[in-house]
Amino acid sequence: MIQNGSFDAETAARFVAEGKADAISFGRPYIANPDLVTRFRHGLPLAEANFDYAYVGEEKGYTDYPAFAG
């Protein structure tokens, strides 16, 4: 079973470890974090998506979020 919805790295790992899911999918966090796996793996902070631009039919707000540079 694949779960989705408001998971972070910790809650996702716990759900899989407890057998509540076989996998966790992430949708919205990927919009602002093209390097989401790296951020989760290294405990880096997540960027916040600007939903003023999301789902309006242009590339702004989808292709211009940078990878973590801390």
Rank of each mutant, 00 (worst) to 15 (best):
M1F: 10
Q3N: 13
Q3G: 13
N4K: 09
N4V: 15
G5E: 01
G5F: 02
F7Q: 08
F7R: 10
D8M: 11
A13P: 01
A13D: 05
F15R: 12
F15P: 00
V16I: 15
A17K: 15
E18I: 07
G19C: 08
K20V: 07
K20C: 02
K20I: 05
A21T: 07
A21Q: 06
D22C: 04
D22G: 11
A23F: 14
I24E: 01
S25I: 14
G27T: 12
G27V: 11
R28Q: 12
P29K: 08
P29M: 05
Y30L: 15
I31P: 00
I31W: 00
A32K: 11
N33D: 03
N33H: 05
P34H: 07
D35T: 12
L36V: 06
T38C: 00
T38I: 02
T38E: 10
R39F: 02
F40T: 13
F40K: 13
F40S: 09
R41I: 04
H42M: 06
G43L: 04
L46V: 04
L46K: 12
L46D: 07
A47K: 13
E48H: 09
E48I: 09
A49V: 09
A49N: 06
N50Y: 03
N50A: 05
Y53L: 15
V56Q: 14
G57M: 08
E58I: 14
E59V: 14
K60R: 15
G61S: 05
Y62R: 03
T63D: 06
Y65A: 04
P66M: 04
P66I: 12
P66C: 07
P66F: 03
A69M: 06
G70K: 10
G70Y: 01
